[in-house]
Amino acid sequence: MWDYTDKVKDYFFNPVNAGVLEHANAVGEVGAISCGDALKLMMRVNPETEVIEAAKFQTFGCGSAIASSSALTEIVLGKTLEEALRISNQDIADFLGGLPPEKMHCSVMGYEALQAAVADYRGVEWRDDHEEGALVCKCFGVDEGMIERAVRANKLTTPEQITHYTKAGGGCLTCFEGIEAVLARVNEEMVTEGLISFDEAYRIGAMDARTMKQKTRPQGAKTPNVEPKPIIALADLERAAAGTIVLERPVEAPPAPAPTAPRLTTIQKIKLIEETLESIRPYLKLDGGDCELIDVDGNNVVVKLSGACVGCQQASLTVNGVQEKLIAATGLPLRVIPVK
């Protein structure tokens, strides 16, 4: 059975805002019964203030679909339409304490229903050429469609590039042959279409998977780590495909300034550690986690990992990553000790 968080279970067993909303003026219907998912989001928007004053849902779907829908109605309540449009599917998943990678599409459905409902209110038609395809990378929840788009938009020709753009293959790498297959297929199509040359195209077996590196910010199975805001990212990819923007996504945190290793007072040291942690935090948050400084004792830095980092199989990698950054920033042989 799926490893649902307590919050997902709670929102499934006791869903809030379920049912039909009378006098709804913003209705979004997404999903399809053939996929086993369908969501009808009904909202009442105050025409003066554009504040969402009521929200209800009806969902045909699995436990996490119902939980995501219910969570969505709670999240949007009291928000203005502008604020609501900024809600990503990751926000819905985060609200629920995470979803299994295979179930991230439930949060995507919530995101889409919201977009559709706002479009309905504004009297515009909303369309999404959403497609999922088979889930290729389970560690990071990356599906075939996402890899294909990344390959096409950025003319990717190696599995490593795919890991850099989509994270797929950055974890256990059992999906390597799956990544290879998608890459080879799409590259072959691109050669036919004249987008890349025959020599550039990737061929299966061209790369030794053992040389592929693990990414330093991966997540365990418990903490779904899909590309943050995949919908936005996909839109970017599509725009990139249309040649309007060039996609640049830093894979790692920007390198910290080289330490000059001055003699620090304890206060200065703690301050510097705090500042460094602050700079890393956005990256941890992208993966649904956080890191809080508890104590500094000599060269021992005691931190508390929270959110998605807790129980993550690869939390130790996160700790190592944090430690590296702190050492680089302070020039001190610091040791990061995580506590519960």
């Binding site: 219907e29 997404v30 399809a32 369908a38 969501l39 999404d128």
Partner: peptide, 14 residues
């Protein structure tokens, strides 16, 4: 409801 035709519900995308 029982024995009633399903609601007309045409979600976007398939």
């Amino acid at each position: 409801g029982a024995d009633k035709a399903p609601a007309t519900f045409n979600p976007v995308y398939a």
